[in-house]
């Protein structure tokens, strides 16, 4: 589904990603781990098309298309979804209006009819059940006055409604208490399916107690220095990132 080859990315002239290679197949869940400042968030942002990310080398192929050529909204319509580490507050934009506009754009791109208010509500309600959100969220402005946990749940709700093919979750576990972590992980687990791939970016192994990845990669100094299965995460938890051979991290 996703082929990343020798990807180099700079932000404001500073090179952050220094040659990433990664292949993700449909149905797989990949965890990207690494210390702060290693480039984990940049990887998800460049895939979603954030304008601050300048690709200097390499390629990204998504379902046979050159992902890097597509504008942000086209990527979303093609099924790429980024759950933000810090979801943005948008005062004055109603949460449910926002979700419906987004879903209708994505549906249009998939050749489906736009949903009317009633049909949308049915989809929305089933999504809300997954993330245990109450209806008052819908009449509020997008993320305005939401707690950290509520914002993250709102991201998972958007994912549930938009049904992406490739979900990128950027530090979705950060700032969550145990209850919220359970709810969010549960949402992610329910979304796992043979035709959907997920990339989880996380600093801590904690999230992986709830979501079992198929592959774990360690990102350090802008490169993937180590890959393995779920046990790699446990090793990291035990021994810390210093355990990874610094030579490999350069």
């Amino acid at each position: 589904m996703l082929q990343i080859k020798n990807l180099r990315v700079s932000i404001e002239g500073k090179e952050i990603l220094k040659g990433i290679d990664l292949a993700v197949k449909a149905g797989e869940v990949h965890a990207i781990m690494g210390p702060n400042g290693s480039g984990k968030s940049t990887l998800t942002r460049v895939l979603a098309g954030h304008p601050s990310c300048e690709v200097t080398e390499g390629s990204v192929t998504y379902e046979g298309r050159n992902l890097l050529e597509l504008p942000v909204e086209e990527r979303a319509r093609a099924g790429v979804f980024l759950a933000f580490q810090y979801p943005i507050d948008i005062p004055g934009v109603n949460n449910s209006y926002f979700l419906r506009s987004a879903l209708n754009e994505v549906r249009k791109a998939r050749g489906l009819e736009e949903l009317d208010a009633m049909d949308f509500l049915t989809i929305l309600k089933s999504g809300m059940k997954i993330v245990e959100m109450n209806e008052s969220f819908l009449t509020r402005s997008v993320n305005e006055g939401f707690s950290g946990g509520e914002k993250k749940r709102n991201e998972i709700l958007q994912m549930a409604v938009l049904e992406p093919k490739l979900a990128l979750l950027d530090e979705t576990d950060s700032g969550l208490d145990i209850d919220a972590l359970r709810v969010v992980s549960n949402g992610v687990n329910l979304m796992r399916s043979p035709d959907r791939a997920m990339i989880l970016v996380t600093h801590y192994q904690r999230l992986l107690n709830y979501i079992t990845p198929d592959h774990v990669h360690v990102l350090m100094g802008g490169k993937i220095v180590l890959s393995g299965d779920k046990d790699l995460a446990l090793h990291l938890e035990e021994k810390g990132y210093e355990w990874v051979n610094p030579d490999r991290a350069q």
Binding site: V72, E73, F84, I88, I90, P91, G92, V93, E105
Partner: peptide, 30 residues
């Protein structure tokens, strides 16, 4: 307009022009 907000809306499939329109409307909502 806050460019992070524009990106957020676009990352959900909303056209850039529409996103800017939504944010300008939101500015006026008050």
């Amino acid at each position: 307009l806050d460019e992070d907000s524009v990106f957020y809306l676009r990352s959900r499939g909303i056209d850039e022009k529409v996103a800017r329109g939504i944010l300008a409307t939101a500015f006026a909502a008050e």
